[in-house]
Design a protein around this nucleic acid. Structure first.
Lengths: 351, 351
DNA sequence: GTTCGACGTTGAATCGTTTTAAGAACGGGA
DNA sequence: TCCCGTTCTTAAAACGATTCAACGTCGAAC
């Protein structure tokens, strides 16, 4: 039923060791033998049994990756970049979705441990430090992605979210906005806290600027809409004139809520800036200003470091921090320009 | 470094066979011995080596799943449902993203074959029939998801896309629309072709109704926007009064394009209906009418069938087809109601 | 003509778990 | 006391690829 190296060896008239050499160290095998073995492999349709290979190698050729939310394009982009980088070294990536649930996160780590993964990339939600230490003792390195490590024991690759928050709010202030709402949550997510912190830093420099915080239950469009509706429900004088959303999904939700009723206009009445600069952001009804992260670079670097640590477990942990970048689009035009823009749809609707 | 059953057995003072029994057939072990073994496992922090287990079992405990696009919430929902069902039988799912590329699809199948997966769930893009036959010979069953099988050799779980297309266009016609554009592509994707076919069936019954086809390069928001802009660029008299998008991502792109310029209004000037009923659909600026598929049921059923076939390879292939359902929202209001709706934002913008 | 190294190839040992046939321990019945 | 049937437990044989020390074989060098 199943064909093994033994069968290949028999057909090619060589030993199993040679078959293995053909596949793994071709330079040790003479050309004529290699050709004979290769054609035996093809004839029999031999496919290596990865379990046996792993068992012998004592570690898998697969990297486990856990992200907070597969539905968030930021993470799929990240995963895709990681996958491409890993493929260059003949490794593959399997993607687990923690859905911002510590229990799911833990289940995936169990799985990865049973599978003796080559390494683990994790965008942690709960505190997994103990688990990760244990994995490392077992020879499975871990790199934190999109988050700086709480203890310095693990390498991490992240973007300076505090700087990103500052960038966003500085921009809002420079557009003349003074009453700013931060929308995002839950506050267990480090990225959210950092972005908020950055916002506070920016606001602190301007006494005329107020910063309020609207906490959401998750970083999703739905939660963003709920927050947007809450803002809408407030009396006109009590509304912020700018919203800094903890990520683009939240921002899109807020945008939909504000726009839907048609009472408020983005950016005329409320400026809006998101975070992550996902593809959807530029494609929104009102193109969304956002904070861009070097996503691909993040993913590649994470894998790079992971591979180095897998090769040499004694390597010291590194913290790599990239800088985010402000992307200005229509959703944060200054009030006067925004007013002009907002007239456009109205008049053209007349036809 | 690594602790094995042998270590556990030594500490517990039993043989390795007993340790294995404790984990896999607890009923064969006396309570007192089981307890002793269990505490040895805990003390040593023993974690089973899955590679060794698989090697012996000759098949993995993991199901490989290949979808067309992880960024499409329809597929992540599908995967999630499959994952939950698989977990009930102690199996896990690894998700591969073919990105509508036959080459990526093929690479994943290679990987799954090397890993001797328990089974494969695939939403095929290219023609993978030969590959799947080969997998089956190797004892790895495959179930097609969201697509009926081209040959009847493989089981499939799908939704009647022809019926869905008919449902959508019938609805548009019933709302008084007569000039309908189908937007979607590429036409290699069976779902797209079927939905189009369904649209044709519906239109055929109404001589006054015209149906044009706008082919896109992929089922994404970006491609949808491009199509929307193309429609916008046409002279006013030459535009359709309704768009049936091959999926919700396309629909959202079309919606953004039409709305952005503010010249046209959905649904007043153009009615719009999508397909899949993803969460984003109801959350769009203009809540999107759509064709809902029983996504969770689809995923669960696929796994169910896969497991049955894995248990008994002789089982005959089954084709399960679910019926889609029309979900009416604002984007397909009839022109008169739509006109009323479209006034709302205008007047309220005056404030 | 012997010695030496280089080059290919071999075969056995190994990875860690599961499984199965066989064995041990125990108690009850004759 | 002996035998037999349970009930647990054991030891050894898989699973299939990789690796490494050992073993030719051949040509070159002395």
């Amino acid at each position: 039923m199943s064909v093994s190296v033994k069968d290949v060896a028999a057909l090619a008239g060589v030993s199993v060791g040679t078959v293995s050499n053909v596949m793994n160290r071709p330079e040790k095998v003479s050309a004529v033998v290699a050709a004979r073995v290769q054609s035996a492999i093809d004839d029999l349709g031999f496919v290596r049994n990865d379990a046996a290979r792993q068992l012998r190698a004592r570690r898998s050729k697969t990297i486990g990756m856990i992200v907070l939310d597969v539905r968030n394009p930021f993470f799929t982009d990240l995963a895709r970049a990681a996958e491409d980088r890993a493929a260059r070294d003949g490794l593959s990536i399997i993607l687990g979705n923690s859905d911002e649930k510590a229990e799911r996160e833990s289940t995936y780590l169990d799985l990865f441990e049973e599978q003796r993964m080559h390494g683990v990339l994790i965008s942690p939600f709960g505190d997994m430090t103990d688990r990760l230490h244990r994995l490392r003792e077992r020879g499975i390195p871990a790199v934190l992605v999109d988050r700086t490590s709480t203890d310095d024991a693990f390498s991490s690759v992240s973007v300076d979210d505090v700087a990103g928050g500052t960038l966003a709010v500085d921009h809002l202030i420079s557009q003349g906005r003074t009453s700013i709402a931060f929308v995002g949550g839950p506050l267990e997510i480090r990225q959210v806290v950092d972005r908020l912190e950055g916002a506070r830093v920016a606001a602190a420099g301007h006494p005329e600027v107020s910063l309020e915080v609207i906490v959401t239950g998750a970083l999703s469009v739905i939660e963003g809409r709920a927050a947007g509706n809450a803002i809408l429900a407030r009396p006109a004088g009590d509304r912020p004139d700018a919203v800094f959303a903890a990520n683009d999904l939240i921002a899109m939700g807020v945008l939909q809520a504000l726009n839907m009723q048609g009472q408020l206009h983005v950016p005329r009445d409320i400026a809006l800036i998101g975070y992550d600069d996902i593809d959807f952001a530029s494609a929104a009804v009102v193109p969304l200003s956002s904070i861009r992260q070097p996503t691909a670079l993040l993913g590649e670097t994470a894998v790079q470091i992971l591979l180095e640590e897998a090769a040499d477990p004694a390597l010291a942990a590194r913290q790599v921090v990239f800088q985010p970048e402000l992307v200005v689009r229509e959703s944060t035009s200054s009030p006067d320009r925004a007013a002009a823009l907002s007239n456009l749809p109205e008049s053209s609707l007349e036809r």
